[in-house]
Design a protein around this nucleic acid. Sequence first.
DNA 1: TCGGTGCACCACTCCTCGGTAGTACAATGG
DNA 2: CCATTGTACTACCGAGGAGTGGTGCACCGA
Lengths: 118, 118
Amino acid sequence: MVCMDIPHPIPEPLVGLIAQRFRVIGDPMRIRLLDTLRNHPATVGELVDAVGGSQQNVSKHLGVLHQAGIVSRTKEGTAVRYAIADASVFALCELVCGGIRQQAKDLDAILQATGTGR
Amino acid sequence: MVCMDIPHPIPEPLVGLIAQRFRVIGDPMRIRLLDTLRNHPATVGELVDAVGGSQQNVSKHLGVLHQAGIVSRTKEGTAVRYAIADASVFALCELVCGGIRQQAKDLDAILQATGTGR
DNA sequence: TCGGTGCACCACTCCTCGGTAGTACAATGG
DNA sequence: CCATTGTACTACCGAGGAGTGGTGCACCGA
């Protein structure tokens, strides 16, 4: 409803861009980073301590998110502070969660109908 | 805003599920298939003719989408008709398109400010 | 029986992910 | 002023998974 002007034959380059965007978000480590940044901006060290993993790996994932324009980077002396730049990712996550919940509900209904005993 | 009951420390299994969901959608071929199915349900043959690619590949991608609960499968005589089962994917695409558009706008503004002549 | 449609298995290729090593920059102490 | 420390980024490498194409098979209708 926000931008309904997407023609049904989606132009090819746009397809690639959309796929890339989904791929960027479709990583557990990056989702954890975004979830941590949701509360407040944080430096790389803080994020390493929050989500676990090596500093290089976290830095790399942050670079991916920054290149995709999802997070912003700000130098603070010797540290770098990252913050959410595109809050729409949380709306995306909530939509996905809704889909997962619906799917779980359907699955549960099927189990109930089939009979819980196997 | 739909399901705000996602705690900030997202439980680990949910992170994996969300990432998997995004990954399923984050493929150009599957996006094309979903875009084709947006108009009306179609059989594998029709989809092969619409999006291009081998029949096996299309069938496999449809299997992935079906397993993820995004499309539904209905036997119709000798053919199988696929249809959208979770319309929220289009909302996802529109959100992503909005983010891409915003990013392009920002980039254009930067170019305008810096001076077009590099 | 024959033709068509869709699926399952297989091997190949490519991309992504994580780890390691090395480098640049700022702050601090002598 | 120079050396040291801490922080963050980049480059390279190996392992693993996902995507792609090919072959063969099962199913359904004519």
